[in-house]
């Protein structure tokens, strides 16, 4: 399968850089999969798992919390606001994170912002369930 260059950059470090076959992104308008030769696109990201397909069934899961994807003709770059690889996730850190997001959500008035935060909580809880399984 054709590959393309993919980079995942968090503010503190580069988390992933290399040739990949497919990347599944948690875009704000719904999950999307990017393959080689994807049309140039820019999209914002929400909380969720990013799945990097390295070919022959191998892959990596990284938890993204907000960010931005720039898909160009040469490759894709993701600027994640916060990113944690699955290996570094623990149930405890996730729980703390859920609590943090929940307190921010509680302080907000009803509106699209609160909805987005609620969706984020949902995603984080899903992630916790996956981790336990």
């Amino acid at each position: 399968m054709a590959t393309f260059h993919f980079e995942l950059v968090a503010p503190e470090r580069i988390l992933y850089s290399g040739e990949v076959e497919a990347v599944e992104l948690p875009a704000t308008e719904g999950d999307m999969t990017v393959l080689a030769g994807h049309a140039p696109a820019m999209t914002t990201l929400q909380t969720g798992f990013l799945v990097v397909g390295e070919g022959s069934g191998k892959g990596k899961r990284i938890l993204i919390q907000g960010g931005f994807a720039d898909i160009g003709p040469k490759g894709a770059t993701i600027l994640a606001e916060r990113a944690t690889p699955l290996e570094e996730l623990t149930a405890q850190s996730l729980e703390e994170e859920i609590l943090r997001v929940r307190t921010t959500a509680d302080a907000k008035d009803e509106g699209p912002e609160k909805e987005a935060l609620k969706a984020a909580i949902h995603k984080l809880e899903e992630a916790k369930a996956t981790l336990r399984a």
Binding site: A27, T28, E29, A39, P40, A41, M42, T43, T44, F68, G72, P73, K74
Partner: peptide, 20 residues
């Protein structure tokens, strides 16, 4: 060389710029 006019924006260019 990226040809920025060809970009697809999701949701919209303004919204992305606004969050960025």
């Amino acid at each position: 060389d990226g040809g920025e006019s060809l970009y697809e924006y999701e949701p919209s260019q303004q919204a992305i710029l606004g969050t960025l």
